[in-house]
Simulated scan of single mutants.
Amino acid sequence: MNLSVGRLLNRRGTDGSIAVASTTRVVNNDDVVERRRAALRLVDRHLSKSNFKLALSLLKNLHRQSSPFRLRGFAAAKQVPRRVSSVEQLHLSVTETSDLQSLLDAILDSIESGLQSCVTGEVDDLYLEDDIVEHKQVVQHEAGHFLVGYLLGVLPKKYRFSSMEDENVDASVKFVGFEFLTELDDVVLSNNTLHEVKAGHAHQASKRQLSSTVLGKFACVIVGGLVAEHLAFGYSKGHLGDVEKLDRVLKWLQFTEEEANTLTRWAALNTLTILYRHSKARSVLAEAMLHGRSIGYCIDTIESNLNHQNI
């Protein structure tokens, strides 16, 4: 496929004046893809050197520009308005409404069971059965985090998986912009009350505030893993750590139970609709991550497989 691109040419006359002429050149789609990949390799280089701000700035520029190789998906996901709390309010087809409602109910049940485990201290057995299913499920889980973050404008800076041979599964995706999570390293959760490990900082930590936008993105990204598992397998087993982390953040910010439930329900619904629309991108991304591809490569994979009619 070829793309026709209009271009303005500036020509300086003998008198110093600048004449502007319009021309059209044909851009081969292979050239577009290669130029995007070259730009994403630069993103990879910045990430490898921990130049996270430069990497994020470059990604934003690649999204904003009007060139054919722009990143259309970054920070472009159509989101459910905060006031919407049910699938019925989305005015979808009868079939989609039924499918998404049953999925949402199952996702919310998983979150609730995770919260109960946090309270009782009972840890469910994560990924202890069939090794092949286990590893595929872990990859889908992390791909869910990655894809939701990218589409909401949160740059993944690195990810990792333990190998299939490892007895204990260890996997994660880290993002640029969620640095506030490091402040939770000094906080422990005991009897549903937050206590500061370092003396003298309890009041400061409990008053820490995040913008509504950042908190909303974090909530969606953190549930992205368990939502992806439900879409791929019909259930989730690897969500306990994510649910516990979301619960800690909301308690840290002194959310009431009603406020926490409202945000969590919206995040689950918003994330479900995003991942539901982009099932192909999620599946291909999981495959790329399974093979340890770079962040830039994974982003290119997303862009090449998005549902561009309804991002």
Rank of each mutant, 00 (worst) to 15 (best):
G216C: 02
G241K: 03
C220L: 06
E229S: 02
H239A: 07
Y235Q: 12
V221P: 05
S212M: 14
Q204W: 14
V227K: 08
A202H: 05
C220D: 01
A232P: 02
K237M: 03
L240Q: 12
A232I: 03
G241H: 03
H239V: 06
A205Y: 09
A205T: 12
T213I: 14
G241Y: 00
G234K: 12
Y235V: 09
S211N: 11
G216T: 05
R208Q: 11
S236A: 11
L226G: 05
G225I: 11
F218G: 01
V221C: 06
A232E: 06
V221M: 01
L226R: 06
L231A: 12
A232Y: 05
S212Q: 15
G238I: 00
E229G: 09
V227G: 03
A228G: 15
H230G: 01
L226P: 00
Q204E: 15
V221L: 03
C220P: 06
G225E: 12
S206I: 11
G225Q: 12
V221G: 08
Q209G: 09
V227I: 09
E229T: 01
Y235H: 15
S212P: 13
L231Q: 11
F218N: 07
K217Y: 08
F233E: 10
G234R: 12
H239G: 00
L231G: 09
Y235E: 12
H230K: 08
V223G: 04
V227S: 05
